[in-house]
Computed example of a mutant assay.
Amino acid sequence: MLASTSQLVLRNIEDLSGKVLLVEPAADSLAQELIHQAPQLELSCYSTDTAVATNWQHSNVKLYTDVSPNFTDTFDTVVLFYPKSKEQLGFTLAQIKTAIGQQTQLFVCGDNKGGIKSLSSHAGKLGLSANKLDNAKHCLWFSLFGDFSQLADISASSFTISTAGESLILHSLPGVFNHGKLDTGTALLLDNLPQVSHGTVLDFACGCGVVGAMLKRKHPAIELFSSDISQLAVKATELTLAANGLSGRVIAADGLPDTPKLFDCIVSNPPFHTGIKTDYSIVESFIRQSAQRLAKHGSLTIVANSHLAYLELLQQAFKQVEVVAKANGFVVYRAH
């Protein structure tokens, strides 16, 4: 099934020519459709989403997945999918600016509910201009133009938190969950972390790496693994661990990482969105996988919005589930 934004790309397929770079597309079958409908195009994809990258890799499309990709040439056409995080637009454009030549045509596609309607004012703040070309599928299709070479490179932001009796330096990048600050749910989780003095510990959907860093700070003997579907989060977590002199393995993975086979403890503030849409299947799959991947006497600790029906999901997968804490609209659950 094609995302609405991908359908709009196909609707405007005649705008695409020559060497085409798709930037942060959705995880759907757009690659196959483009290959089928316009075999003359030379397709490449830049994605920091592991699921999307895997999907495009299976289509034998040239793939760029590094946060700072090394483009050796420019493209005739660039199609950028408007990010959920507005601050990520300037960051992504700066990351791909070496792929944009003077003759490159750059188009931006986005869902109306995702903020694409404000692209013109957003582009103006970046010294660029946007022109609306099409409106369909509840999405918009813009051309974006200007001097992309003048876009400033954006480095990771850093900030310090003091909580749960510890102080940590955190690094974050645009597009990482709750970029640049500690969210309320994670703060509650940090105050109610499991007491795990040793063994393999996974910080799932690690974001900027704060949960794993706190666990490693409090329990240096654990073997820490941190994973996220986003390469941006992986990079941020690596920077966070390094800034605090902590060790851990950081993995880009769609779902739980393949290794190690078993964990003694899994901790997470799990996502429940795919793009701008609520997607409970992510958490359902995560809970099922966790039950299968925990060692004997292992535990899963998660934080969630109190209105989300996670208790039933946990009780279906685990023998013992307890509510550890409730505050400010969030709940911390622990399952054994």
Rank of each mutant, 00 (worst) to 15 (best):
L119W: 03
L89T: 05
T163W: 01
G124L: 04
L144G: 05
D111I: 00
P69Q: 07
W56A: 02
K84L: 06
L182V: 09
C139E: 06
A99F: 04
S68F: 11
K86C: 02
N55D: 05
G146A: 05
D73R: 12
V176G: 01
T74K: 02
K62P: 00
A94W: 01
F91G: 06
A187Y: 00
K97C: 13
N178A: 13
A123V: 11
Q88C: 13
S143W: 00
I161A: 04
L126N: 09
H138I: 08
K84M: 12
A53W: 10
D111C: 06
D134W: 12
L106Y: 03
Y82W: 10
D183C: 09
L144Y: 12
L119D: 03
N55Y: 04
F142V: 01
F91C: 06
F177T: 04
F145P: 00
T186D: 08
L93W: 05
G165D: 02
C109I: 14
T98E: 14
K84C: 01
S85M: 10
E87I: 14
K181L: 03
K181F: 03
T104H: 06
E166N: 11
C109E: 10
T160H: 04
H138G: 01
L80H: 07
I161N: 05
T74A: 09
T92Y: 03
T65V: 14
A53P: 03
I116H: 04
D153V: 12
I154W: 04
G114Q: 10
A123T: 11
T74G: 04
S157R: 15
K181W: 00
H58S: 10
Q150P: 00
V176D: 01
G115F: 06
K137P: 10
S157K: 15
Y82N: 07
F71K: 10
L63Y: 10
G124D: 05
F145E: 13
K117C: 09
S120D: 11
